[in-house]
Amino acid sequence: MKTNIIISFGLISFILLLFYFGLNNKNKYETSDLVGKKLSSFELKSLDEKNVFNSNTLEKNTFTLINFWASWCAPCRKEHEYLMLLKKKTGLKILGVNFKDRKENALEFLQTLGNPYYLLAKDHDGRSSVNFGIYGIPESLLIDNELNVIKKFIGPINFDNYKEIVKIINNK
C-alpha cells in the first residue's frame, strides 16, 4: 500500500513537472540561440556594385552594427534617428545592407533622412540575408572585431536598444 502511494505520488509529481516546464516554454521565435556564435564568412556587393565586402572588412572595426533595411520599410524610418545617433559613437561602425530594394529609392531615402552607414551593401533577392539569420526587416546584428554576434535586434531599434548598444560599446 505504502509502495503504491509512493509510486503514484512520484508519477503525478513527474507529470506536473513536465507540464510546468512545457507551459513555461517560450512559444515564439527568438534568436537568443544565435547570440555568441561567430558569423560565417560572407560576401556582400556594394550598392553601387563597384566593391565587394566580406568578413575581413568588418574585422578592422571594434564593433559593427549590420543593419538590414529598405526604403519601402516603414519601421526602418522609425529606427533611422537612432542609427544617426549611433553613427556618432566612436568604436562603432554601421554597415547598411539594402534589402530587396531599388538603388534609386534607397539613395533617395538616405538623402532625405541622412546616411548613418560607413559602408552600403545590397541584397537584391534576400539570399545573402539568410547567412545572417535575417527573416524580416529591419533587423540588426551587433558584432565585435572577431565577428562574434553580441546581440541581435529583430524589428526597429528603439531608445532602449540604442542605450544597450552604447553600453556594450562603452564597456569594451
Partner: peptide, 13 residues
C-alpha cells in the same frame, strides 16, 4: 511570404 520565397531560392542553391 517574402521570407519563404528567399528560403526557396536558398534551398535550390
Amino acid at each position: 511570404s517574402d521570407f519563404a520565397q528567399t528560403i526557396k531560392l536558398v534551398v535550390k542553391d
